[in-house]
Design a protein around this nucleic acid. Structure first.
Lengths: 214, 214
DNA sequence: TACAAAATTAAACAAACGTTTAACTTAAAC
DNA sequence: GTTTAAGTTAAACGTTTGTTTAATTTTGTA
């Protein structure tokens, strides 16, 4: 017997789990928490997903499904300069990661624990594919002499790291920005503008072929 | 009665806990795991620390105790240019965070779960103090016209985020660097050089007062 | 209407969790 | 040597954990 695919309750469970994992971590969330929040009997978790861990696996696969298409489309777009592609990339990732802030917290958390090899490999695979595509854009820019030679892996680490820092240390930045009582939405809109502006400016200086002599 | 301060077993517990938390997360580590690894009776955890959570609190306080002195010393050093201070800062943080990779994973993990307000406030406080001092260096550079006007909070996010990215996504970068069987030490030395070189280069372009027109 | 499969439920399961207890040993102070 | 407190232990505490069971309801099909 294969697993059933379409039910309201199944989606409710995924949604409730997503919010709870982001809030309290994977281990910190019990299946009873999830069932209660989704207003579904707790036995349904094993029924639909097999186990709590498999539920997380489905969650990750499902939420990551679409993100590669845009990248691949951009790679083969000859009307955009490499720099325009980078700008577009920054906007895309800031919106995507900031918008799904809670969910990306789960992934960052789970990726650091060597508990489930399956989940780590799953995430690594997804990140690798994204990474290779972006590397192509950077290399294209170098080839066309629009970018200088930079360390592509570390440059990616800076782009992703900056965004991750902004979502992982929300507490810190709320205090730094004097917006401690702010809602999730307020934080996101404020942080979105600031992140995009900063990242574009920094990446432009970093990638620019003409370098000043300091 | 106040808590006892000096015992071998107490230190063993802290060390064992540090390694296990980093490996399996806070919730993923049981007090029995800790006691077994430290070769100490599990009742000693409550005896020395009161609870598992208080143990984590002690761990964080203890491991962060010394890091502010160097920063304060640098702020008031007039023989160094702002840029030299930034270079020194990069080297310091890369060494510190990369060296205590496992421990910083705990903090990043725990900081994202809103389980214990006490621990979050503790970490936020430490980060805030570090942050304010670094902001002074950046502002000094702007004042002396050696740096251009940048977003200091986001610039910090990029510095810290880049390093965090390198320690949190070790799995990914091991594969990207084709060093999948590498030991922790090999990874750290390789990543250390690469991180420092990249961060100095990127920050120099980013902060430089003379900007190219791309 | 009758029947089989799928969905759903409350209850129970054993295992693991963090913490506490009470008895015991060691060390220090007088 | 006696006394007092600190250190240490094995056992038990009551919860909570993820998962399974077996009974029941709902659904779709013939």
């Amino acid at each position: 017997m294969t697993l059933p695919e379409k039910t309201d309750k199944r989606e409710h469970l995924l949604k409730a789990a997503e919010e709870l994992f982001a809030e309290k971590g994977f281990d910190g969330t019990s299946v009873r928490d999830i069932a209660q929040k989704a207003d579904v009997n707790l036995a349904m978790i094993s029924y639909y997903f097999g186990s709590k861990e498999k539920l997380l696996q489905v969650l990750i696969e499902q939420r990551f499904a679409s993100s590669l298409e845009l990248l691949e489309g951009m790679i083969n777009n000859n009307k955009m300069t490499p720099w325009e592609k980078i700008e577009r990339l920054i906007e895309y990732y800031v919106d995507k990661i900031l918008g799904g802030r809670r969910f990306h917290s789960i992934i960052n958390q789970e990726y650091n624990t060597d508990r489930s090899k399956e989940i780590i490999d799953l995430i690594t695979g997804i990140k690798m594919r994204n990474f290779e595509l972006i590397k192509l854009i950077l290399e294209e820019g170098v080839k066309k002499k629009q970018f200088r030679k930079i360390d592509p892996e570390m440059t990616m680490a800076s782009m992703m790291g900056t965004i991750n820092q902004a979502i992982n240390a929300k507490n810190l930045y709320c205090r730094l920005f004097s917006m401690e009582g702010a809602s999730e939405e307020e934080y996101q809109t404020k942080m979105s503008v600031r992140l995009k502006t900063h990242l574009k400016m920094m990446m432009r200086s970093h990638l620019s072929a003409e370098q000043p002599n300091l």
